[in-house]
């Protein structure tokens, strides 16, 4: 009957989205009057496992197998499916991260358990099991009813926010049968893309567009970002012109982000860009064109030349940071 949550790990680190998913799962378990089991695959350190208890795991189940340290959709799906059966779990919560997107759909097909691919809120569990999800790239929401007894929730990162919910979280070692043939990919290399905060996890994001005129002018963006501890991002034309790396591109065909604060500088706000950022809590737009569509989407707007106003804003923020 339990709720099982799968915390995604990268390089044996528990990602922010996974803490959020554990908290989310513990609330769902509370709704259903059952317990939360966090299932950590691979050779995680003891203190990493206890983090899971801090965010709401009544029990931490682990499969200590170093072959599971890198994500493999076949092996991970097999391991999770076996443990779901062992615990007769009714609900499985998976953070809908890159790896989560490799696991949840596969598990859904394997267990024939309905999946909500990108839940943004807690499920409604009185009567039908219904979960809200964003659709049409931010232009709508849909309520997904899961028709099967067993349910899988792919929780969209940054939709609830991780909160501590300390539980006992006793660690239990489990065994699953995994043959070498269950491992289908060989990981050659892992590249961390940013030195600072990864964009997908960032709470604050400063983003630049074509209005900045060239890669040599990115200093104003970086100074502002550094002052408030934000990640940097860019619009599609900027990535396409190779002013900035592709992984910084936010928008329809780049990354979708949901930070608390998104500062768009010199970005006109094409609909494809808005699709990637319209779930941000607060949007600030700085643009010299008063007709720029981004200003309609923003909470706060400044019509000015970026090269004049952004350094002033950075200075004002530095004073605040120093004062606090």
């Amino acid at each position: 009957m339990a709720v099982i949550v799968y915390p995604d790990t990268v390089e044996k680190e528990i990602k922010k989205a996974s803490k959020e998913a554990v908290y989310y799962a513990s609330k769902v378990a509370g709704q259903l009057g059952t317990e939360t089991i966090a299932l950590a695959l691979g050779t995680l350190e003891e203190d990493k496992l206890s983090t899971l208890a801090k965010y709401g795991a009544d029990q931490v189940a682990t499969v200590h197998d170093e072959r599971l340290d890198h994500f493999d959709s076949c092996a991970h799906t097999k391991a999770v499916a076996e443990i779901v059966e062992q615990y007769s779990a009714r609900v499985i919560v998976i953070p809908y991260t890159n790896n989560g997107q490799g696991l949840a759909p596969r598990l859904s097909a394997r267990l024939k358990a309905g999946l909500v691919p990108g839940a943004v809120d807690f499920p409604r569990t009185d009567g039908d099991f219904v979960v809200k999800k964003g659709v049409f790239s931010g232009k709508g929401f849909a309520y997904y009813k899961i028709n099967t007894d067993r349910k899988i929730i792919g929780m969209l990162p940054n939709s609830i926010g991780p909160q501590e919910n300390p539980k006992a979280g006793a660690v239990e070692q489990l065994n699953v049968t995994l043959e070498d043939s269950d491992f289908t990919v060989q990981v050659k290399d892992v590249q961390k893309s940013t030195e600072g905060v990864p964009l997908s996890e960032a709470d604050l994001v400063v983003s630049g567009g074509r209005g900045l005129k060239g890669p040599e002018n990115w200093g104003v963006i970086e100074d502002l970002a550094e002052t408030i501890g934000a990640a940097t991002a860019c619009s599609r034309p900027v990535a396409d012109s190779e002013w900035r790396p592709h992984h910084e591109h936010v928008g329809q065909t780049g990354q979708t982000i949901r930070p608390s604060l998104y500062i768009a500088i010199g970005i006109s706000g094409a609909i494809q860009h808005l699709a990637g950022i319209n779930k941000s809590k607060v949007i600030v737009a700085i643009n010299k064109d008063p007709e720029a569509p981004i200003l309609k989407e923003a909470d706060y707007g400044i019509v000015a030349d970026a090269f004049e106003v952004v350094p002033k804003l950075t200075e004002a923020l530095k004073e605040k940071v120093a004062a606090s």
Binding site: V10, A17, N99, V185, K188, V190, K192, S193
Partner: peptide, 10 residues
């Protein structure tokens, strides 16, 4: 992957 990229063969 979250915060990076992974190179793999299959």
């Amino acid at each position: 992957i979250e915060g990076g990229q992974e190179t793999l063969s299959v």
